[in-house]
């Protein structure tokens, strides 16, 4: 037992020396359980949407919204992301459902629209764009794709995309109809319900309040540390 404990301490010291200021997360099983029981925090995307969503860092983030519910989803979030950033971004449209007529022309000039036919095309496109590394943010809209098609995407594909995104320092935001991305750095859910009265409000005044469901490091690290102790 003591030798295992010493091993862990040596490992932590080695990692701290090597990676300097990087945080070293070591959630225990108890803290994980406690986090699950707590009410996840709500975030209002009024200003600094990207910071609020925590997608300033490279990696994959997921936003879940069931498509049949009236949720202020992709276009609103994208408009706010474009408004806040001067860089271009890419939209990988898994089912070719984006409506340019719903968005102001000034925002259209700032993003690359990739109109895919199915989820397979979307994964390939995401792989190429993340490897390219020229666009700092890639948004993947899989919300309208059939669930059966999305479930056929192996988990290893998502881990590979995450590794590529981290290597090229690109952030990837995935919109999905259900939990889909096991490798996501953070997972948000949108479950608001709107009625026809929403059409009387200005779009920027529409409250978008995603709920954070998960924001923790890869489970692999936690598992390793848990078994090592």
């Amino acid at each position: 037992m003591n030798s295992n404990r010493e091993k862990i301490l040596d490992l932590r010291k080695m990692l701290r020396d090597k990676h300097g200021s990087a945080q070293l997360f070591a959630p225990t099983a108890a803290s994980i359980a406690a986090a699950d029981m707590e009410k996840p925090p709500e975030t209002r995307l009024d200003t600094n949407c990207r910071k609020a969503l925590g997608i300033g860092k490279a990696g994959i983030h997921e936003m879940i919204a069931e498509p049949t519910r009236a949720t202020a989803g992709l276009a609103c979030v994208m408009e706010r992301l474009i408004f806040e950033n001067s860089e271009h971004l890419a939209l990988i449209d898994g089912q070719d459902c984006f409506d340019p007529g719903s968005t102001d022309a000034q925002f259209l000039n700032r993003f690359l629209w990739v109109r895919c036919r199915d989820a397979q095309d979307a994964i390939k496109s995401a792989d190429w764009l993340l490897r390219d590394g020229n666009l700092p943010l890639v948004v993947m809209d899989l919300q309208m794709n059939p669930a059966a098609e999305l479930r056929r995407i192996p988990a290893s594909s998502w881990y590979r995309l995450r590794a590529v995104a981290e290597e090229t320092e690109t952030a990837c935001l995935v919109f999905s109809p259900e939990k889909l991305v096991p490798a996501a750095h953070s997972r948000w859910s949108l479950s608001q319900r709107f009625s026809l009265s929403a059409f009387d409000e200005r779009r920027e005044d529409i409250a978008i309040t995603p709920v954070l469901e998960r924001a923790r490091p890869a489970q692999e690290t936690a598992d390793f540390l848990a078994t090592a102790s």
Binding site: P67, A70, A72, G73, L74, A75, C76, E79, F83, C97, F98, D99, G101, S102, T103, D104, F107, Q143, M144, F194, A198, F199, D200, E201, R202, R203, E204, I206
Partner: peptide
Amino acid sequence: KSFRLGLPLRR
């Protein structure tokens, strides 16, 4: 900022 009304459409 956009001055559009209502929600965006997904076609």
